[in-house]
Amino acid sequence: MTRFVKSPKEVASGLLLIVLAAFFAWQAMELPMGRAIRMGPGYFPMILAGLLAFLGLVVLLSGLTVPADPDDNGIRFRNWPWQALALVTLAVVIFGLGIRPLGLGPSMGLAVFISALASQRFHIVTGLISAAVMVAFSWAVFIKGLGLPLPMLGPWLGGY
């Protein structure tokens, strides 16, 4: 495979751009196009999707023909911090899921603690302290200070 693919990064970027372009074009197809004088909602997105696909193609072709930069050491999927990526994303998603039913306190605590797990230097004590500090801080600043309409405890936990 390496014989055809000169720069895996470029090829992957090109493919990604083309897929995104196709996705937007597919979505824009359902929209009325209109004509140049009175453009419909689909006109400009369609032009952009075409442009994006073209640029993606250029990137893809250059990845197949132009050798990669010597400094470029490829995508190296194995070295991606998969665990950190997953945990940080999970922390944010849990905050989003918890904010209504659980309230600000528990979801903030969970989000901070789960994202703390993403570090290799994670320690249970510091993780818990960070979560507690952040819960107290967000209560003081966002609920007391700024008066955001957020319950500390949500309906599932006996709040309102």
């Binding site: 940080v88 922390a91 944010v92 905050f95 989003g96 904010i99 600000l104 979801s107 903030m108 989000a111 901070v112 603690f113 994202s115 703390a116 993403a118 570090s119 290799q120 230097r121 994670f122 510091t126 993780g127 960070s130 979560a131 500090v133 952040m134 967000s138 966002f142 955001l148 957020l150």
Partner: peptide, 17 residues
């Protein structure tokens, strides 16, 4: 490693509000 979980927390509440 102490700092970044706090940043995540701030981002969450910030974007939600």
């Amino acid at each position: 490693h102490i700092l970044f979980p706090l940043i995540v927390g701030f981002c969450c509440i910030g974007v939600y509000s």
